[in-house]
Design a protein around this nucleic acid. Sequence first.
DNA 1: GCAAGTGATGAACCGTAGTTCACTTCTTCC
DNA 2: GGAAGAAGTGAACTACGGTTCATCACTTGC
Lengths: 199, 199
Amino acid sequence: MPYRRTTAVQERLDAARARLLDAAEHQVRAHGWAGCSVAAVAEAAGVATGTVYRHLPDKAALLVEVFRIASQREVDAVAAAANGTGPVVACVARCVEVFAQRAFAAPRLAYALLAEPASPEVEAARLEYRRAYRAVFAALVAEGVERGELPAQDAEVAAAAIVGALAEVLVVPLRDGALPRGTLHALTATTLRTLGAPA
Amino acid sequence: MPYRRTTAVQERLDAARARLLDAAEHQVRAHGWAGCSVAAVAEAAGVATGTVYRHLPDKAALLVEVFRIASQREVDAVAAAANGTGPVVACVARCVEVFAQRAFAAPRLAYALLAEPASPEVEAARLEYRRAYRAVFAALVAEGVERGELPAQDAEVAAAAIVGALAEVLVVPLRDGALPRGTLHALTATTLRTLGAPA
DNA sequence: GCAAGTGATGAACCGTAGTTCACTTCTTCC
DNA sequence: GGAAGAAGTGAACTACGGTTCATCACTTGC
């Protein structure tokens, strides 16, 4: 056996793969999914197009991987905001703010993750991550109801409504790149009303 | 001038165009946007592919036209439900029910109109029609606030939240083709809470 | 240093589907 | 009936971008 992959090589491979995914994410940040042609990603990563296929089976897998990495980061941030102490209402408000602030820190990426048309594989992953967001809010709602801070309600539907409202309210501003003053406040207020939280 | 388009011919052309759009909508009802290749639509309409281009400049225009016709029909139905008499809360509940019922009468089409990935041109039209739905709800909310039936709030944000919630709650059931029992009721309740309507 | 085998390359390939166009068929009107 | 021209046809064309693969460069272990 005159060749066996050494740890140094493995690390180089891992680094190359990471650089590839990073380059792809940068393409999405700049130009959305359309900027993620295999050729463009390869060039941005400083490798040949064929090299992409040494790290990933096909383009769909590349996009899904990028989507997952970026989406997971966002879900984690919102989940962290949900896990703080204090009344449920405060946690929800914090989640909404964190979500919106992070989205506007990278509007093009946020739009791509949230709403931009993409391949069926990415769409499937999007549904999955929508479910993750819902779960975060559903847990909060369930706890709020249990604690008596919120009126009895279907936590799943309420959570879906919040996620939908977040997306719907933010999509257009994200495309424009600017959030009108007051919108975030109104969004928080509307979200809390959705849960039947006392004003 | 040895030829001038006669009214009979014009009517035949109009009918052919209508048949084409109708065939395209049927394709969407059955298979979503993917079923709308120019060849498939032409065959479904009983004409040659080249004939499509005698009625529409290109494929994008065909899809947008189909989208508009179907979406306008739905918006009109919801707007009609909004225009009835009675308290604003009842109108909103009626709108939600009408929207959901009509969507589940043609789930594949509803999914295509609501959320299925499509060409940029269709996406643009989708944003436009989302705005139309928002306008319907925003008018209701504004009237509710004015009448003192609803607490003071940002009508635009509240309307966007309702539209987003509607879409988010229904998208997955639409893909499955079945609305779980109780979901519609919970959706209505959540929607009314969003507006701060008294339970 | 050398044989065996892996990683990287990028130009060529290929499948798909939208679009075109030379041709046929039909309609109008003198 | 026949000339002028529009409507309809569908096979061929074309653009596009993902994927492949023959080739080269590099790494490993003796």
